[in-house]
Design a protein around this nucleic acid. Sequence first.
DNA 1: GACTGTTTAAAACAAATGTTTTAATCATTC
DNA 2: GAATGATTAAAACATTTGTTTTAAACAGTC
Lengths: 224, 224
Amino acid sequence: MEAADKKGTDTRERLIQAAGEVFAQRGFKGATVREISRQANANIAAVNYHFGDKEELYYEVLKNSLSSVMEKYPPDLGVTPESTPEERLHAFIRSLLFRVLDESRPTWHARLMAREIAEPTAALDQMIENILGPLYGYLTMVVKQLISDEANDELVHNCMFSIMGQCLFYHNARHVISKLYHKKFGPEVIERLSTHIMRFSLGAMKDLGILDTSHAKANYISSQ
Amino acid sequence: MEAADKKGTDTRERLIQAAGEVFAQRGFKGATVREISRQANANIAAVNYHFGDKEELYYEVLKNSLSSVMEKYPPDLGVTPESTPEERLHAFIRSLLFRVLDESRPTWHARLMAREIAEPTAALDQMIENILGPLYGYLTMVVKQLISDEANDELVHNCMFSIMGQCLFYHNARHVISKLYHKKFGPEVIERLSTHIMRFSLGAMKDLGILDTSHAKANYISSQ
DNA sequence: GACTGTTTAAAACAAATGTTTTAATCATTC
DNA sequence: GAATGATTAAAACATTTGTTTTAAACAGTC
């Protein structure tokens, strides 16, 4: 069988692609092996033959997703050892936004990860270990450089969450945004969003950093 | 039957409460009428008798949720006509955070709405009309007062999204946050978070507002 | 070209699930 | 207190769905 992708291509691979699409769209429970098989041009029994059962297929799909998601948009894209912390932050935001909003390629990676984050299965742990943990670690470093190396942990975490939240919101609330404001997320819009989020966050951290270092930690901790 | 809540309480009401819990936990597809019925101490046929079918029950649950979610924490809690825009923003953030994080009462309202936002069913439209639309309208007003009444719409929207994103992140990523940082969201933590988000956002908008009004719109629009 | 291990195809199975049916029970009214 | 309408209970039904089985088709090897 020398045909390119008529039937010769690995059924296993086609199943993963199809399953990714279906899982992302309908969730683990909502996805049926019949729909996956149909969409992969495979027999119903193919899933069980190649993966054992539906759950194992899901894990395989997620693992596949994890490794490919970071490839196209690594969090330090275009950053050199000489880059300023500001440039690193912009690169981080930009890559995160493209990672979750770019529709020029299969979008199920991001949607699947978002699903797993919002309602974890047993697979969340490996996702944290391989992707989210390192990602947060990297952002921690960047933020610390931006506000103050000896800023208290709470402030650092809060700033990180403020940045992550701004980025992920556009993915999470995309249906609402599009219904309320008829906004579409093409590459140039994403570019502008990343500029906004960077300026917004830099302005904020400039303020907070001053607060934190001048009035010392007690100031930030006192609330209300 | 005069007993308080042994069996005399409306089965219909018990079904809605139980269904809310189960739908929020397992999603529409994952929830089974059997589990709902069991948890409501009702017969399997009760759902169909009282609501026609499972989908109609879901809509009823969501409608019930919508009307009750805003009651305890209205977005302008504690705000008077004399309040400053800064106070209004703080109240908005605070109430939003409590709305989505407060675990001292049934949490399924927020979880269910988050589900509907992330993966809409046909019910999203009424949710936008009754809740999200007004909420965003109110925030628009507050933000405009904070940066500049004649700020361009894009900047206003972006700031709104930055604020909403920061708040909703803690709900959306709660499992990841708790696994990574062992953070729990008690009332005092929520209070401090709201203070952080307010300061973060005010600092940011102060910056952007200056940018926007002094260098005029062209400045903001130029990206990269 | 028969043999062997791998993959695909079709059908069947068993469990789960939303819904319906039918009868019993409860509550209210005359 | 019989009659009537509303509610609940138990069982059955029809579909869907994940999985298994059995046989056929294929690919590579001697």
